[in-house]
Design a protein around this nucleic acid. Sequence first.
DNA 1: CTGTTAGCGCATTCAT
DNA 2: ATGAATGCGCTAACAG
Lengths: 467, 467
Amino acid sequence: MTSQQQTTTQFSRIQLIQYQLLKHFPVLDVTGAPAAAHWQSKVAVLLGSQRAGRGGHELVNRRALGQTRAMKPVSGKAPSFTKKSPESTLAMKPVSRYAQVLMVVMAAFQRSHGGNSVRCPSPFRNNREVGPMPQRGETTIQDIADHAHVSKSTVSRVLNRSSRVNEDKRAAVLEAMKTLGFEPNLVARSLAGGRSMTLGVLTQNIGSPFYDALSQGVIRGLAGTGYSPLFVDGQWQQSTEAESIRTLIGRRVDGLLLIGGDVPVEDLNDLRERIPTIVVAREIKGWENHCIHVDNVQAGYDATRHLIDFGHRRIALLRGIKEHPDAIHRFEGYVKALEEAGIKFDPELVFQGDFSGQSGVMAVNSLVAKGTHFTAIFAANDMVAFGARLALSRHGLRVPEDVSLVGFDDQAEAAFATPPLTTIKQPAVEMGTAAARAIVNLIHDQPYELACLPVELMKRESVARLR
Amino acid sequence: MTSQQQTTTQFSRIQLIQYQLLKHFPVLDVTGAPAAAHWQSKVAVLLGSQRAGRGGHELVNRRALGQTRAMKPVSGKAPSFTKKSPESTLAMKPVSRYAQVLMVVMAAFQRSHGGNSVRCPSPFRNNREVGPMPQRGETTIQDIADHAHVSKSTVSRVLNRSSRVNEDKRAAVLEAMKTLGFEPNLVARSLAGGRSMTLGVLTQNIGSPFYDALSQGVIRGLAGTGYSPLFVDGQWQQSTEAESIRTLIGRRVDGLLLIGGDVPVEDLNDLRERIPTIVVAREIKGWENHCIHVDNVQAGYDATRHLIDFGHRRIALLRGIKEHPDAIHRFEGYVKALEEAGIKFDPELVFQGDFSGQSGVMAVNSLVAKGTHFTAIFAANDMVAFGARLALSRHGLRVPEDVSLVGFDDQAEAAFATPPLTTIKQPAVEMGTAAARAIVNLIHDQPYELACLPVELMKRESVARLR
DNA sequence: CTGTTAGCGCATTCAT
DNA sequence: ATGAATGCGCTAACAG
């Protein structure tokens, strides 16, 4: 089955023609199926006033039918009218865009059927009552206005509650919106109103637990504010991020929430001048009240300290990607805790890697292969910890009896690992929420606070006292 | 520090005023810092022609400055001009929106400084050469056109490569776009062009592995097509989903990709008539070429069969949420495999739950508490399997020696569980990619195929032969 | 309180 | 090949 099926709607095109003609041009007798050419000229007369200087050709551009391929111009028969033409002036009435659609549809229909005369089977033929039509998603406030016998402005006012409206008219408008199935065009609204009520959210690798938790927090924080988030994925690649941000700006989002990411600081500074921006989970100098993040140094310190408190002195650090600021800060915390406890820092115990499970496996394998003595591991994140834990068990090392293990992030799986993993919990959801609220306030030029949230050590069962 | 900082840009407001005045009204001598009131009336004269019937008050709406709070009207001094007024006609020139901004800025500045005379320190004072200005994100094709001495149309043509343009002009336009830092307004483009080059993607619970993998697939499949995805989160709640879809439609996305979800089939049918739609990871009757999903019955069968092949006959099923179609289908597969092997179905072995780790824990606890005999578990997803595995170990049951375990989804953590989890891998990324390609073809009315992708049993170490 | 008017920034069509 | 004109659907200022 191919996509041809897709355009099959409840009504055939010719039926739609009839419906619309009946609705907008009751004066035309189309139910009797006159020659299509006849319709054309009639409609053309009505349309003549519509667009001065365009002649009768190509009165419609392709979008009229929601198609993307260009319509060939109608054979040129349709006469050209200018605004001054008395006939057209006479015939002028509120002509909806449907009328334009019709002409094209008719022409297309005529072409595809070869002849110039058309007989139309129709559910409408014997029924001049024209009721509501299944929506094609094209109702506009003008339609509503016509239907409710008010002006567009009034409809707009009802929509936005921007000023008082007479209760009667209000009801009529609401009624019309309901029967016509009106759905406001946010695109037009954004363009006219100069604001889109949308926030761009640049996230990283949809599917990674920490960033997803942040996104969830953002969604939660935005609930009820009237703003909706628009997520794009930066994939931790500068080029993709830049591209995504361009898209967001092109969409005229009212604010930007950048979660993590590698965008150079200079670009960020430029960005901030154009659009309210808040950076989440990344620390940037000079952005004091525009970024929210946890204290990774403290977190690294806490985790290491916890192990030290349990008697460990040979603590392996499986830090993440070398340049990643989070990894660097956690490393600093690790070093600080060691120093404070008077433990000599041993580079043999530190492994670079990425944030993957495989990276944990490899680190442990290497540790064991080199025969390095260690009694505990502090992993860059939970995934690395899982990898390490697997590798340990492969080598017959038990957790926590032989080796203690601490992760980072407290992703959902951590609590159900065997044994449940002791890990640093980042308040990801809370950060997302806070950031969302902050950006809304920032946009409205309201004051707000963006506190550095504390991390929490989730003590579970992967850490044991060293005997 | 509060958000007041945000509006601090590289240039002060008064500098911006001067810049703009110099650029648009070189005839005015503003560098000498005349009284602000003087400027006001001068600009007002120029602006008089701009908007007939508006008087001199509140010439600017709030968006002009990107602010959201209303500007108080200028004190009322500015005279009112109509289009007929000879002075204003005389002074008419292409007045940019900046001019409007200026007036407001000036008024605000004047108010905030109390006096009516202003001396402005300015980098522009001694420099009548007006170069490029740091972008405020407001450059339009008109600006480009002015700068390149061509018409808007030509700029548009260059932008869209929609028709040949003289190489010289083309270069000039490109040059202008670069120096002015032009960024096309996608909102306006969507409105005018009738298509947004955006696809709405309704996903469920950002942060759940399977749906995130699908999203990643979508991103991948869309790369290079010119379409960009717009993610919204349905949270597995009908109301939220409906709301999200409305938003997407309001944004005039060109197509819809619904990943999972609970939207009633009738609504879906309505939807499909309005907008190209493809449903992912959900099976709907009558949507044969519009939905892509795996064969969950087969998957349930495969997993169960695998356990049976290893000699298990007492296989507990930790199915997911009761009404969830996936859970139902997998259950059917389970039953089918049992029947085929001549094993009597035992309701004691089936547990309802959700898709959480806790649900796995509870099921196993209950199984053990009731003393039900079982040698294997087939879990609704990997997370449930992790929970089950933890509970088993709490009860001293080893995996796979005492109990074999099969999960579902093959999320990243599965391969690093202890022991690595045997699980059903859904081709999530591939499905996402296929769906993305399909929707693009659907939009363009091109044929496409939407195959039912096969699942794969990832045999790892959590299943052992029953002795 | 309501209708009128003028754009928002761009694509597109017709005329040149 | 290029410019002028029109409108996409809506908001908001203005004039009753």
